[in-house]
Structure formats: C-alpha cells, structure tokens
Design a protein around this nucleic acid. Structure first.
Lengths: 203, 203
DNA sequence: TACAATACGGAGCACTTCTCCGTTTGACTA
DNA sequence: TAGTCAAACGGAGAAGTGCTCCGTATTGTA
C-alpha cells in the first residue's frame, strides 16, 4: 500500500470533498461530477482517481456528515444534562436524515452495498446508544427503550416528511415531541432523580 | 382539452408504460429513456410527447403500481375474512414499498412535487383505512389504531430493509409479524410487549 | 541537484437527454 | 369511397454528461 500520500493529492481530495459537499447540497446527488471537479479546480481525471465512482464520492461526503453528527453527540454529552442532550441530538438526527435522505437513497441505488454505507449505520447506532444510555442512567429516558427502536422511530419521522416549508417543519416538531414523550419514563408521579426534563441550559 | 386521443397515441402510451415498467424494474429509475423508447418501438420524440420529463414517466409507472396495490385491497376484502385480508395486504404493502422505494425516491428528487405523488399517498391511505376498518369492525384489529399509524409502522419496515437476500427477508417477516401482533386487540390474558414469535400464522 | 514515482489535467469517446421539423396516419366529412 | 387536416410519429442532431488515456508537471528522496 502507499505509505504516504503526496501532499497535493491530499489537498485535492479535500478540495473535491468540499466541492462535492457544496454541489450535492445545491443540486442533489445527481450533481454533475464534471462540475464538481471544476469547482474544486481540478481536472475530471483527478476526481475519478480519488473517487472511482459517483457512489464512492457520495459515500465519502456522507461519511463526513455522519462524522459531524457523531461528534455532535459527544459534544452534547459533555455539555448538557442527559435528557436535554438526548432531545437535542434527536433533533439533529432528524435534520441530518432529512437532508441526507437523497444521498443515502442514491447511494443504495448505485452500488449494491457501497463501502461505508454499513459503517455509517453502525456509527450512528453507536452514537444513539451512548446518548440514550446516558439518559437512561440518569432516569430521563425509560430503561426498556432500545437504541435501534429509538432510531427507527426517529428516522421514520425524517422519512415521512420529505417536503419543505413551515407546515412540514411544524409536523416534524410535533412528531418529534411525540417520540420524546414516548421515550420518557412512564412515571405517574414526578421522577425523584436529579434532573427530570424541565431545565433549560443555554438556549 | 383532449377531445379524444387517437388510437395510435393511446397504444403508444401503453407500450411506453410497459417498456418503462420493464426497464425501471431491470435498471432502476435511472434507466435510459432512449432505451425505453426503443423497447417500446417508438422514437424518442414520441416518448417525450407523452411524458415530458422523467418524473412524469416515473409517476405514471408508480401510479399504475399503486392502482394494482389498491385493487388488491378490494379483492382481498371480497375474498377473505377481515383479519386475514389485513395481514395479507400489509404484506403486499411492504413488498410494494420495498420495490418502489427507488422510484418514489427518484420522483421526489426530480420534481419538488410531481403530480400524482400526493395522490398515491392518499390512495394508499384510503385503501389501508378500508382494510383496517373492516378488521376493526370484525374485532380482529384494535379499534384505537389509525390507518396513518398503521401505514407508518408498515412503511417503516420497508424503509429500513433495503437489501435483498434471505436474512433480510426473514427480518422483514419478523418485523411484520410484530406489527400485526401490535395491531391485534389486546387480549385480556396476553402480555403486551414480549415474545413476538410463537404465534401460528392462521388464527 | 538529479531522478523516479506519483499525481495532474484536459482532449476525446461513447452515451445521454431533449428538441425540431418534415413525414405519416387516423378520424372525420361528403 | 376518396379527400382533408390536425394530431401524432420518428429520427437526426445539438448540447451536455460520465469516464479514460496518456503526455506533462510536481513531489519527495538520494
């Protein structure tokens, strides 16, 4: 294997990823690859050397976004009480899924199982498990809720709200509130643990 | 308005739809439109006159498939006891959703809201409502279940199982059994949230 | 500094989508 | 039945893709 990558190669890779990020955001996953190369200031050949297929490029972009989402989970875990961290991260998850639904779908269409697709799922599930477990330990989430179920519920929201616009946003909020409510422990009386769910931190 | 369509026009439309059906089935929603025209034995111009955009063609094919799914609902309602009709139709719904996920996704990417997309949703929901209502009247489905919720649960299964292969099929079956179990009226003696397995399919 | 190895870029080919317009065909009338 | 004409057809072609090939330039090393 190549011991080290030449610095120009690494730089071009970054430029391409940034350009792809931008282009996919603007034109969806069908964005012209030639155009992406042009935006990055490189030739088509360079693009194809780094990412042999559209799926590879999509996967790389998606992976970067998933990185960000998982990083967000850790960041929230460090800075907020468990219950609020869970709520905030689920909101971020829905936003992520809604934005990247197209990318993910396109990826599945291209390669049967492009490298990294599976990895993305696993990593998101791990992040969800961590955030959830913390909230469960704290008592702000019911203990019998599995990360997989929580994910499925939340991604269901994203999948069933493909449109944009205020009314759709409102619907997403409503459904998300519903899920968060369902995730709370079913305590008939107030939960005696440290922080139930009423405290607002920064925002 | 279209006074009457010429018979050759109508025939070509049918040929194109059939060819599209076939081509999308083989190559996914990115199938070459030229190729579809060729399969149908017409020129590209004819294809574009009937379906000005790829989205229009996708929508037409999708609509035809939805027609079939809804017809299936009526057919089942006429020929089976309500509980079995519901189970069988949900199975058909999952199959439909899994096959057409790509089409639907592609459609959403193309036009913001292509004509017919909305209609498909509404029609499926109506069919679900009819099948469910019948099962509820009969006592084989819990009365507090809404068609929208049932649909969401069922489509969730399809969405989260994108792969093919025996293990994935088994997973789908398992999840579907779970949903069907959840749809059953809560038996006085049964425990609600454990052991999805252990039911024989026929009741 | 000289030299591989590595990476670059863009001309070019095959293949799309989509349009334009001359030709054909079906339906209607007398 | 023949005549008429709007409606529909088909395919050449323009414009724009994806992807490859190979001569040239750049980088890290001796």
């Amino acid at each position: 294997m190549t011991a080290v990558q030449r610095t120009d190669a690494r730089r071009n890779r970054e430029l391409l990823l940034a350009a792809a990020h931008e282009a996919f955001g603007e034109s969806g996953p069908e964005a012209s690859l030639n155009d992406i190369a042009r935006r990055a200031g490189v030739g088509p050949g360079t693009l194809y050397r780094h990412f042999p297929t559209r799926a590879a490029l999509l996967a790389a972009v998606l992976q970067e976004r998933v990185d960000r989402l998982c990083a967000r989970a850790e960041e929230l875990a460090a800075s907020r009480p468990p219950g609020r961290a869970l709520a905030t991260w689920l909101r971020a998850l829905v936003a992520h899924a809604r934005v990247n639904q197209g990318l993910g779908g396109a990826l599945l269409l291209e390669g049967p199982d492009a490298p990294g697709t599976d990895d993305c799922h696993r990593r998101i599930e791990n992040a969800a498990a961590a955030v959830l477990a913390r909230a469960q330990r704290d008592g702000s989430a019911r203990p019998d809720l599995s990360p997989a179920d929580l994910l499925r519920l939340t991604l269901g929201i994203a999948v069933t709200s493909t449109r944009r616009g205020p009314e759709e946003e409102a619907r997403v909020e409503r459904l998300l509130a519903l899920v968060l409510d369902a995730a709370r422990p079913p305590a008939p009386t107030a939960t005696p643990t440290t922080e139930p769910a009423g405290r607002d931190g920064q925002h």
